[in-house]
Amino acid sequence: MRKSMKQEAANMRSQNLYDVDFHQFVEKEHMLSNYELAVEFGVTLESVKKLKRQIHR
């Protein structure tokens, strides 16, 4: 099945979240702001927000 460029870009963005150590993220999410988490783990601010939403489901 073919993928469009848009689908591939979305897939690449979602895969970048898996480079984050989830145990460290959970430990630090209560102490740090979203911006500080993004800088700490080297991801975008939007990725931090998405990850928090997924964790709290």
Score class of each variant (00 low, 15 high):
M1E: 14
M1D: 08
R2A: 14
R2E: 15
R2V: 13
R2S: 09
R2Q: 12
K3I: 14
K3S: 04
S4K: 07
M5G: 00
K6I: 06
K6G: 02
E8P: 00
E8C: 00
E8Y: 04
A9N: 04
A9I: 13
A10Y: 10
N11Y: 15
N11M: 11
M12P: 00
M12A: 12
R13K: 15
S14V: 09
Q15W: 12
Q15F: 10
N16H: 13
N16P: 01
N16E: 12
N16M: 14
L17D: 03
D19V: 05
D19H: 01
V20K: 02
V20C: 08
V20E: 07
D21W: 03
D21H: 04
F22N: 01
F22T: 13
H23V: 09
Q24P: 01
Q24H: 07
Q24T: 03
F25N: 06
F25L: 15
F25D: 10
V26P: 00
V26T: 10
V26H: 02
V26S: 05
K28M: 15
K28P: 04
K28L: 15
H30P: 01
H30N: 06
M31T: 10
M31I: 09
S33R: 02
S33E: 07
N34E: 08
N34A: 05
N34C: 03
N34M: 09
E36Q: 09
L37Y: 04
L37N: 04
L37W: 06
A38I: 06
A38L: 09
A38W: 10
A38Y: 08
V39R: 13
E40N: 09
F41L: 13
F41P: 01
G42H: 07
G42L: 07
V43C: 05
V43T: 06
T44A: 12
L45P: 00
L45Y: 12
E46W: 03
E46A: 14
E46L: 02
E46Q: 08
S47M: 14
S47L: 04
S47V: 01
V48N: 05
V48Y: 11
V48A: 02
V48W: 10
V48M: 02
V48G: 02
K50V: 05
L51V: 05
L51P: 01
R53E: 11
R53Q: 11
Q54D: 13
Q54T: 02
Q54Y: 12
I55M: 13
I55C: 05
I55D: 11
H56Q: 15
R57K: 13
R57I: 14
R57Q: 12
